[in-house]
């Protein structure tokens, strides 16, 4: 089966000469369709950089990023933008909703940007918002929603355009523990019930414990990989143990 994402020898260096920072030093990662993968590691290990490169938000210094057979590094900015629009759904730490649009409009935005008829886009956005439990908050603007609710809108937005993969960058980093737990469970549901592929970057073991597989990064390299047996958040201790092993 063709992987959704595969990276080959991915290297990212910021700056030059003596001030050069090696954020990634040759990452090889493959994600299969339907997989829920969490990337963990201490601050500055390159988790977010990896996510940005896979999402086409940034370009690698060397190496390849292949999304469903297409090498991002070979594409022009416009092509990458189009690919991002169709194949990738983003969920950010700070929700990043457009403040002047309501929940429904925010969720429909990527589809409208892609040229879908607004009525159809709104219909799909409404369905996904209902699925993530916001059926009654469609007309609310971000400022009228709680943090957890805003993140659900962002997740609905990521899902509504039916992307190949969802990239979530610390989606619970700005939430309290209860809201975090709820978002983690939602992501689990998205993966197991709705069959979506998810790449999650987090430093919270309780959230990572919902994933199928956890990849541990340190100093820009993959240092460990663990396939979880139970994927319901119960194996937090296992994750914490691994973190300690790699020295976080």
């Amino acid at each position: 089966m063709q992987p959704i994402v595969s990276t080959q020898n991915l290297v990212k260096i910021y700056g030059q000469g003596v001030t050069a920072v090696h954020a990634l030093r040759g990452i090889n990662l493959t994600i299969q369709p339907g997989e829920f993968v969490a990337v963990m590691g201490p601050s500055g290990c390159g988790k977010s950089t990896l996510l940005h490169l896979i999402g086409g938000l940034d370009r690698p210094t060397s190496g390849k990023v292949v999304i469903e057979g297409e090498d991002l590094t070979q594409l022009s900015d416009d092509k990458v933008t189009a690919l991002r629009r169709r194949k990738i759904g983003f969920v950010f730490q700070f929700f990043n909703l457009i403040p002047v649009l309501n929940a429904l409009e925010n969720a429909a935005l990527p589809m409208i940007l892609d040229g879908m008829r607004p009525s159809e886009a709104y219909q799909r956005a409404r369905e996904w918002l209902e699925r993530v439990g916001l059926g009654s908050r469609l007309a609310h603007r971000p400022s009228e929603l709680s943090g957890g609710e805003q993140q659900r809108v962002a997740i609905a937005r990521a899902l509504a355009s039916e992307p190949s993969i969802i990239l979530a960058d610390e989606p619970t980093g700005n939430l309290d523990s209860r809201a975090s737990e709820e978002i983690a469970m939602l992501l689990r549901q998205i993966s197991s019930e709705w069959g979506r592929t998810i790449l999650l970057v987090t430093h919270d073991p309780r959230i990572a414990a919902y994933a199928d597989r956890i990849v541990f990064l340190k100093d820009g390299q993959i240092v460990d990989e663990t396939v979880m047996e139970r994927r319901n958040g119960e194996q937090v201790d296992l994750v914490v143990g691994k973190m300690k092993e790699i020295g976080d």
């Binding site: 999402g55 938000l57 900015d77 416009d78 933008t81 189009a82 991002r84 629009r85 169709r86 983003f90 950010f92 990043n96 457009i98 403040p99 935005l109 990527p110 940007l113 892609d114 937005r157």
Partner: peptide
Amino acid sequence: RRDIGMLRALGASRST
């Protein structure tokens, strides 16, 4: 800047 960056992340092209 943030809104614009985010629109770009969501797939809005430069011309959009």
